[in-house]
């Protein structure tokens, strides 16, 4: 099975928080869904916004002490991951719908 950016981000979250695989994937899925995003077609920018604005709150609720440090560490790892270079933005609905009204 092909590894997605979501899978890689969940692995990094697991490593930096001490969560189990299930906890990490579940927490990330909740944050991604509450951002109105699709876990299957995430981009690095979108994950960046999730980890900056939503994930600290989610981690705090689950008893993580250094939430900002954990989020920053995950994002640092993700930026260096080879999968981060994959761009799925040109085929996502937002991108298509923003192109439709260009003059």
């Amino acid at each position: 099975m092909e590894t997605s950016l979501f899978d890689v981000a969940a692995q990094k979250l697991e490593r930096h928080t001490g969560f189990s695989q299930l906890e990490a994937r579940g927490t990330l899925r909740i944050a991604v869904k509450s951002a109105g995003l699709d876990p299957k077609s995430l981009t690095l920018d979108e994950l960046g916004a999730v980890f900056e604005k939503l994930m600290p709150g989610e981690l705090e609720q689950r008893g993580v002490i250094d939430t900002a440090g954990a989020c920053a560490a995950v994002m640092r790892d993700l930026e260096n991951a080879p999968i981060a270079a994959t761009d799925s933005s040109s085929s996502n609905p937002d991108d298509i719908f923003s192109r439709l009204a260009k003059s």
Binding site: S34, A35, G36, D94
Partner: peptide, 8 residues
């Protein structure tokens, strides 16, 4: 939801 995060 994405708009609130500046993603849309």
């Amino acid at each position: 939801q994405r708009m609130r995060l500046g993603l849309c």
